Computed example of a mutant assay.
Amino acid sequence: MAKLRKMLGSADSPYIISLMRLIETQSKSTIANWCVDYVTEHIAAIYRKAYPEDRCPEQALEAFREYQNGKIKLTDLKKAVAEVNNAAKAAEENPAAQAAARAVGQAAAAIYTPTHSLGLAFYGSAAVAYDRAGLSEKPEVYEQIASEECGRMLAALQAVAVENEEHPAKINWYC
């Protein structure tokens, strides 16, 4: 079996470019809420299925919501993100769960670094592809699933996007 990629897609993929262009028009809050809502609804369960006793992903998502509601400080949110990133490193033997944990961390971090919103696309689509197709498929199969999943992400962002949002995030993609 060929070594699986930790994330799928690339910055020049048409589906990633479409996401980037819409993300650029939205505020940090809109972007981060979309990320967290999407990862909660579609991706976090992939990690939970593999590691039902580990609550790091849920705790990071809860920390995001508490930060958004002014109940905790940014340093507390960053600690929760670090913990879920550590959980991802520990999940090396399960590529789907590892990618799901990374997607959770990226989503929760999007409020302070909006470029992490692409991490949802790259890692989230990998988590879905590996979970759905298993770990022995050809790269083209994974890329097709990633493309379809990113299309669903784009549709979810379009559904919550604020037209002519007054304070869009200042984003430099560095890619």
Rank of each mutant, 00 (worst) to 15 (best):
M1S: 06
K3N: 04
L4K: 00
R5C: 04
K6R: 14
K6W: 09
M7V: 09
L8I: 02
L8H: 03
G9H: 03
S13I: 01
P14C: 02
I16M: 15
I17L: 13
I17E: 13
M20V: 06
R21K: 15
I23R: 00
T25Y: 01
T25F: 01
S27N: 05
T30R: 11
A32Q: 00
C35A: 13
V36D: 11
T40A: 11
T40R: 11
T40C: 07
E41W: 02
E41K: 12
I43M: 02
A44F: 07
A45Q: 05
A45D: 07
I46N: 01
Y47T: 00
R48K: 14
K49P: 00
A50T: 04
Y51T: 00
P52I: 00
D54I: 04
R55V: 09
R55M: 12
R55Q: 14
P57W: 05
E58K: 11
A60W: 07
A60Q: 09
E62P: 00
E62D: 13
E62L: 13
F64L: 08
R65Q: 11
R65E: 12
Y67A: 09
Q68M: 15
N69L: 14
G70F: 04
G70Q: 06
I72E: 09
I72L: 11
T75V: 15
K79S: 13
K79P: 00
A80L: 10
A80D: 04
V81S: 04
V81E: 10
V81I: 15
A82S: 14
A82F: 07
V84W: 06
V84G: 08
N86S: 10
K89S: 11
A91Y: 06
E93M: 03
N94E: 13
P95F: 04
P95Q: 07
P95I: 06
P95Y: 06
P95H: 04
A96R: 00
A99T: 04
A99F: 02
A101K: 04
R102C: 01
R102P: 00
R102L: 09
A103C: 09
A103S: 15
V104K: 08
V104A: 08
G105W: 04
Q106I: 00
Q106S: 14
A108E: 06
A109V: 00
A110P: 02
Y112K: 05
T113G: 01
T113I: 05
H116I: 02
S117T: 08
S117C: 15
S117V: 10
L120S: 05
F122R: 01
Y123K: 03
G124A: 07
S125T: 15
A126M: 06
A127G: 05
A127C: 04
A129K: 05
Y130W: 02
R132M: 14
A133I: 03
A133R: 09
S136F: 12
S136L: 12
E137G: 06
E137L: 04
P139H: 03
V141T: 14
V141F: 09
Y142R: 02
Q144E: 13
A146I: 07
E149N: 10
A156K: 03
A156Q: 02
L157S: 07
Q158H: 08
A159W: 06
V160F: 10
A161E: 10
A161C: 11
N164Q: 12
E165F: 07
E165W: 01
E166L: 15
H167C: 09
K170D: 13
K170H: 10
N172A: 12
N172P: 00
W173R: 03
C175Q: 09
